[in-house]
Design a binder for these strands. Structure first.
Lengths: 193, 193
DNA sequence: GTCTATACGTAGATAGAC
DNA sequence: GTCTATCTACGTATAGAC
C-alpha cells in the first residue's frame, strides 16, 4: 500500500474512533495526514469509503493481536485468568478498536456489522469457545463470548464514568484488580468464595 | 412544563439516542415537534442546551422506573433472578436510555458523565449494592454494578451483531434465555452446574 | 499525486414581523 | 410563541492546473 494511503487510514481510524463519523471532517483528516482535503479524493471515493477502509484497517491489526493471544497453553482455569488479563491489557491499549466496536454497535448498518462479525469475531470466538468448552461444557459458549467482551469492554470504557461516582475508587481503575474481579466472577459467581 | 417544550424534549431524546448529537439537525427536531427550526430557540439557547435538557429528561423517567424495580422483596437469589429479568425487559424497552448511556460513555465530557453518575446511578447502585451485600459480601459491590450493567446493556445492544454471526441463534435474541444465562453465570460462574 | 479554486448544500443561529 | 427571511460558517465533493 502507498504510504499516503496508509497514513490516511491511520489518522482516519484514530479520529473516527475518538469522535465518531459525523464529528470528523475530511479537512481535519487531511490536515493530520499532511495533505490537502481535495487530495484525499484521489485515494478514496468519498468519506464513507474512507471510513469503511479505516475500520477494516483497524480490524486487520486486531485479528493478528488476537491470534497471538490464542497461542498460550495451560490448564483451563489458569488459561482463563491469563486470557482475561491479556484481553484487558490488549483492549486498554487498543482503545481505538474498543471505541469503534461500540460505535458500530450503535450506528453500524447490517453490512458494517457483517464486516465486524466476519472480519474479527471468528478469531476470538474460536479461541474462547475452545476455552469455554473446557471450562463450562454446560454453558452457551456463544453467549459466553458476549459475556466476556461485554464485561471487558464495558469495564474499560466505563472507567471515565466510574471516576465520577462517589463510590469510585482508584483501585477500580487498575487492570489487575479488574482482572481478578472478572475471573473470580466468571469462575465462581457470587455463591462461592 | 409547557407542552411544546415537553414535545421538543421527547422528540429530541428519541432522535439523539437513535443517531447521535451530530447526526441530528435542529430542523429535523423542529419538524418532528411540529414547529419551525427558529422556534426552538425560544425554548433553548442552542443545540447543546437542548441535548443536555433532553438527556436529563430521559434520565428522570429512568430513575422512577428503577425505583419501582427496587420495591420487590424475596430471598436473595430469587431476587437476583427477578432483578436481571426486569432489568433486561426494562432496558430492552428503554432503548433510548440504553443508547444514550453508550453514547455518553463514548463522547460525554466530565460534566455530562457527572450528570449520569449523580442523576441516575445512585438509584440503581443503592438497590444493587443491597442485593449484592446479601448475595456476595466478599465481592466488590461497585464493580458488581458495572458487571451487571455491562452484561445487560451489552447483550441487548449486541443482538444486531449477534444476528450477523454464523453462531448466532434465534434463542440468543430471546430475553428469558438471556436472563437465565446471566443469572446462572452470576450465581455459579462456570465451575458449578 | 497533490495543489488551488470553487461549486453547492446544509448546518446553527439571529432579526424582526405578527 | 411562532413565523419567514436571512446571515455566516463549514461541510463534502469536483474541476482543472502543475
Amino acid at each position: 500500500m502507498e504510504p499516503t494511503q496508509k497514513k490516511l487510514l491511520g489518522v482516519a481510524a484514530e479520529l473516527f474512533a475518538e469522535r465518531g463519523f459525523r464529528a470528523v471532517s475530511m479537512r481535519e483528516i487531511s490536515r493530520s495526514a499532511g495533505i490537502t482535503q481535495a487530495a484525499i479524493y484521489h485515494h478514496f471515493t468519498n468519506k464513507e469509503a474512507l471510513y469503511i477502509a479505516a475500520v477494516e484497517y483497524l480490524y486487520e491489526g486486531q485479528t493478528t493481536d488476537l491470534v497471538s493471544l490464542a497461542s498460550q497453553q495451560e490448564d483451563p482455569e489458569a488459561k482463563l485468568a491469563v486470557t482475561v488479563s491479556r484481553l484487558l491489557t490488549l483492549f486498554d491499549k487498543q482503545a481505538q478498536f474498543r471505541r469503534i466496536y461500540f460505535r458500530e454497535l450503535l450506528d453500524g448498518d447490517q453490512k458494517r456489522l457483517k464486516l465486524l462479525a466476519d472480519g474479527v469475531f471468528p478469531e476470538i470466538h474460536e479461541f474462547l469457545v475452545g476455552l469455554m468448552a473446557q471450562l463450562a461444557p454446560h454453558m452457551d459458549s456463544h453467549l459466553m463470548v458476549l459475556d466476556l467482551t461485554g464485561l471487558i469492554f464495558h469495564h474499560l470504557e466505563a472507567r471515565k464514568l466510574s471516576a465520577q461516582l462517589d463510590t469510585g475508587r482508584p483501585k477500580h481503575q487498575k487492570l489487575p484488580y479488574l482482572a481478578d474481579h472478572i475471573v473470580a466472577l466468571l469462575l465462581n459467581g457470587v455463591r462461592n468464595q
